[in-house]
């Protein structure tokens, strides 16, 4: 079986995988990082969003071997020294979740949205940029509020 090595949340990791092993399977099953969720498994819901070399991608549609040598950040990698990332804090403050299943992907997308659109990102931009993240509980309202709040504190 081929071996893959990459950086995950700053640590160099490696493991045996198959050609068909998805990045999300490697993260969850091999590394035990179960914060990245699999919702639809068809690249639509965005619960599996992680950052690969700084870009937000759907880990259910990326091959683990294609990430060889790359740097991956998952939801577990956002908090620093026991303090939540400002975006995580904003989701808590604004109650940007109900069941919480989509939340890891929402937060990873949110951080990416702010990185590309700045701290003063407009509500309409956030709503458009959330195209690839589905929440079936909240109606998005508090998620959008949380992202605006988190953006101002990032």
């Amino acid at each position: 079986m081929p071996t893959v090595s990459m950086k995950v949340n700053g640590d160099t990791v490696s493991g045996e995988v198959e050609g068909r092993t998805l990045l999300v399977e490697f993260l969850r099953d091999t590394l035990g990082l179960t914060g990245t969720h699999v919702g639809c498994d068809t690249s639509q819901c965005g619960a599996c969003v992680v950052h690969v070399d700084g870009k937000a991608v759907k880990a259910c549609t990326a091959l683990a071997l294609a990430c060889e040598g790359q740097s991956v950040t998952t939801i577990e990698g956002l908090a620093k020294n026991g303090a939540l990332h400002p975006m995580q804090e904003a989701f808590r403050e604004n109650h940007g979740l109900q069941c919480g299943f989509c939340t890891p992907g929402m937060i990873m997308s949110a951080v990416d949205i702010v990185k590309r659109n700045g701290k003063k990102v407009k509500e309409a931009t956030i709503r458009a940029e959330l195209d690839g993240n589905i929440c079936r509980c909240t109606g998005y309202h508090n998620i959008v509020k949380a992202i605006q709040d988190g953006a101002s504190k990032m």
Binding site: S43, V49, A56, K58, T61, D112, I113, E129, D131, G132
Partner: peptide
């Protein structure tokens, strides 16, 4: 095209 994550790949 697609959504931001799809456009990144």
């Amino acid at each position: 095209i697609g959504d931001p994550h799809v456009r990144n790949c």
